[in-house]
Amino acid sequence: MIEMDGIRKIYRTQHVETHALTDFTITIQDGEFVSVMGPSGSGKTTLLNIAGLLDTFEQGSYLLDGEDVSRLTDRQMSAIRNQKIGFIFQSFNLIPDLNVFDNVDVPLRYRGMKGSNRRAAISKALEVVGLSARTKHYPAQLSGGQQQRVAVARALVGNPSLILADEPTGNLDSAMANEVMDLLETINDMETTVVIVTHEPELAARAQRRLHLLDGRLIDFEAADRPTPLVARPDGSSSARV
């Protein structure tokens, strides 16, 4: 799914150069559940931004689903984000003026789907996160856990092959955090690759593989006990992970 080789990312200001990622190389297979840990400033979010085509890099190569993304236009990268990637953020990033239904609708709007197809996909995604009864609610009317579940539905609705979650449980209490992790596992069980950044070791331990970053470098990775599952996609098809 993700093949990064020798990625270098430097943030420059007038006086300072910050090496966010240095010669970063990683391969993440289709359907993997990977957690990324590390102290603040270690490059976790930069890794996610580059993986999600939200940021560029100075050096190295990045193949997403076998496609070299370094030469893509903005329109092509936007289309890939829209069709292949789902994002979940620490602070939910729901649009306050839109109700639950319309928030989940946003990625489908940029895909140009027909209304009936959009409605069906949104209903299904909200059903997965258990918020079918809250479609008319606005973000301000929901708890933090519910808001994050809406964000998960929004990430899920386009049936992406990759979910990138940047500290998705950072603003939640432990019960809600576990709920969200359960959801991510459910999504992963549907053969969707999940990469999650977290500071919490017990949540990171639920991933199949844990990456540790320090100063923009991968210093360690551990395999977890969680078995590779047989998968079922939301569209009903199923396949064995390779």
Partner: peptide, 16 residues
């Protein structure tokens, strides 16, 4: 800008 960032992440191109 943050809302625009979200829309960009969800697939909005610069043109959109």
């Amino acid at each position: 800008a943050p809302e625009v960032g979200v829309r960009r992440a969800l697939g909005a191109s610069r043109t959109s």
